[in-house]
Amino acid sequence: MADSSHPIELTVNGEPAEGVVLGRQLLVHFIRDTLGLRGTHIGCDSGNCGACTVIVDGRAIKSCMQLAVQADGSDLRTVESLSAPGEELDELQGAFTKHHALQCGYCTPGMLMSATALLDDADALTLDEIRRGLKGNICRCTGYVNIVHAVEDVAERRGKRSA
């Protein structure tokens, strides 16, 4: 059976973008293969690991769990939106390097996007809320300790850390 194809238009990292996607094409494949934004990674194909996390219309979602066609008309943010090559790292990225919150770096883009949404959404975060808030993102290198502390550090700086 031939694949169906669908034109879509969306905003990607603040810029308008358009493309023709296959009916069965996953959003993560559209991001990586069509848009060429390779910072968004694939780790499990089943919505468990969060390496493909992006922010769509303000919410962190797993882009392997959506079809590309579903992103039509949406506002999509990927890790590349946080800071561009040659630019200063953003506050969260800076905290990740300060606390050594990444090793191999494969989970990092998804982790940053989840944490960005978590920090943007919350008024106040306890340590346990930060740990639970990152539950959808698997990291196999760091044991999470330093990731939790990096997010905690940013929450503190933004006055969003609660006991």
Binding site: R32, L37, R38, G39, T40, H41, I42, T78, V79, E80, L82, S83, A84, P85, L89, Q93, F96, T97, L102, C104, G105, Y106, T108, P109, L112
Partner: peptide, 14 residues
Amino acid sequence: DRRLLQGQGLFTDD
């Protein structure tokens, strides 16, 4: 860290 944090690493599938 910089390239990995900015989504600029080069993994094989990239």
